[in-house]
Design a protein around this nucleic acid. Structure first.
Lengths: 344, 344
DNA sequence: ATGAAAGCGCTAACAA
DNA sequence: TTGTTAGCGCTTTCAT
């Protein structure tokens, strides 16, 4: 009947600062100061309290602390999954980036909140910020979300997007230099003596559009024309690869190389070419994009354009932290490199 | 000089409930009730307040709400990285599990905090719970952390581990049936007429030890002896694979098949066998473990033991939620299946 | 060097 | 139906 009765019977209450204070015979202020290493505290008191806390596995409640301090060391990483072109968290490249972001955040003492949101309700990403769960958002995969992203940026949500820099863009992007990457890949195939180089990739996506630009530049620089018959708008999936290969073969045009805009696409293509009796790289040379871990385990080891994953995490994190501190940051273009292996 | 001066000049203060209340001409309680769809509120007031909040992009501050409600809908996912056997967030299989956990949590309205911690300071995982940042922890990768995990469980940290169930275990594990998986793999090779089946994997790890058990069981059931010369304690890495293949070849023993305890290991092995002039599967049949996405893109498409990734996420999440609600849960063994492709 | 008291943004008795 | 008030667990003036 007394107020004591209010505590639930089965769950032993979590320890809190008041408990430590009582046990140590001091006030909560003193405990707070001791645990935050305030210079106001006596050395021996501090040690006593620290020892007590450690022995009881007490740690300051971060939620309460954040509320009081009006701070928060959490960054959200959002992976939109396109309900249509089903490439979500299973893409090895994106997974790699997430890992590198995790590293970069950990290094700076930040926590990472990982969320998947359907592309239709992308403002869920902004919500994470609005609710104060995170001080900023890193969005992996620009896809076709340009307008929604612009809206968020317009209302000052600290958001950084992994993707391509495109005109009229209010949000900050970090991405690899896709134009250079496309040029590198195509140039490499030209250098290998290839004359009829196909392009696999959905040019609706900003990043792919840039890679296509690079592809065209390299062809033009070599005095070769862009043949629309060799350009296949394949999604980043296995089905995309299958469709591209079948379509290409059915068109009956000649080709001796393919630049595929993702390693997955490249691998699917190689398998299908082989199944059709075409030897890689002799009959068809193939270059991929991303340099995922498995590219070099592939047979033949896959030539590809490497995106600098570790640098990506760093750049994304420092951009979002800058934004969250009201500093302005520009877009970042990371360098791509050609990794020539046996598929070309 | 007045109190107004205390507000920082450059950062426009975040909107809060009191602001909405003032703008709507009601009290904060009313706003709170409206936004939480309390039945006590008038329908039209509710709509008015909801509309106002939406138009201003106001969302309830989750931190403050959690503090007041003594709740928290966040689960931590911890990936220890062994500084020695460097397999961390880059393992495609673990990455897949993380994705499936993210799905399972999202479905239940929980947030996911992703953290990498070095294996040496594994109690950082417990800290996440102690500080109230998460109501429970899912740990990916049992490795050799058995004792530390037991200690955490002993002090009632709600923790669920992806790994193998072993004796004297206080913590809850969810994992695939590794013994059955090992048996399946080996049996399949025996059925294919193989007589000298090697085993690649570090049997110090509980899960691998179980797979080894299954391997031995299958051999014995077929009346075949376990030849120690064919058992290679390879780490889950490329170097591990290289070492295993080289050692096996250098021993000069005959062998016609390999059961590798991870797909990565299997792929490395296949590449090296091929480089040594051995044909897969004719000279050496290879079966892997995990069925990572790239297994079927491999050449030849990799036969492997599938671990049920989607089910894994579900099971891990429901276990950790049960624990966090003081319910007891037992360990979960998920079914493994053989996926026979062309490498065997 | 330490304690008392106010308040971070919110919710829920309780009162009206 | 709505407002007033107390308090979630913590930090920090301000006083001692």
């Amino acid at each position: 009947m007394t107020k004591k009765a209010s505590s639930e019977s089965k769950d032993q209450r979590r320890l809190q600062m008041a408990d430590i204070a009582r046990l140590a015979g001091v006030s909560t202020s003193t405990v707070s100061r001791a645990l935050s290493k305030s210079p106001l505290i006596g050395e021996e008191t501090r040690q006593r309290i620290e020892a007590l806390a450690k022995s009881l596995n007490y740690s300051i409640n971060v939620g309460a602390q954040n509320l009081r301090l009006k701070q928060n060391k959490t960054v959200a990483v959002v992976v939109p999954f396109d309900t249509a072109s089903h490439q979500h968290l299973s893409d090895p490249f994106f997974l790699g980036i997430i890992g590198s972001i995790a590293d970069a955040l950990t290094e700076r003492g930040y926590d990472m909140l990982l969320t998947r949101v359907s592309a239709e309700e992308l403002d869920a990403a902004a919500q994470i910020y609005d609710t104060g769960r995170a001080i900023g958002v890193i969005l992996i995969g620009q896809w076709r979300h340009h307008d929604q992203l612009n809206q968020m940026a317009a209302r000052k949500v600290p958001i950084v997007v992994w993707g391509a820099q495109i005109p009229q863009q209010l949000y900050v992007t970090v991405g690899s230099d896709n134009v250079a990457g496309g040029r590198l890949a195509c140039q490499h195939l030209i250098d290998a003596g290839k004359k009829r180089i196909a392009f696999f990739g959905d040019t609706q996506l900003p990043e792919v559009a840039h890679r296509y630009q690079g592809y065209c530049q390299a062809l033009q620089a070599a005095g070769m024309a862009v043949d629309p018959n060799l350009v296949l708008s394949a999604a980043f999936t296995e089905e995309g690869g299958r469709w591209a290969v079948e379509t290409l073969l059915s068109r009956g045009v000649t080709f001796d190389a393919v630049f595929a805009c993702s390693d997955l696409l490249a691998m699917t293509a190689i398998n299908l070419f082989r199944a059709s009796g075409l030897a890689v790289p002799q009959d068809v040379a193939v270059v991929g994009y991303d340099d995922i871990a498995l590219a070099r385990y592939f047979h033949p080891p896959l030539s590809t354009i490497r995106q600098p994953i570790a640098a990506a995490g760093e750049a994304l994190v420092s951009a979002v932290l800058a934004l969250s501190e009201q500093n302005t940051t520009g877009p970042q273009l990371l360098e791509t490199t050609l990794v020539a292996r046996q598929s070309s």
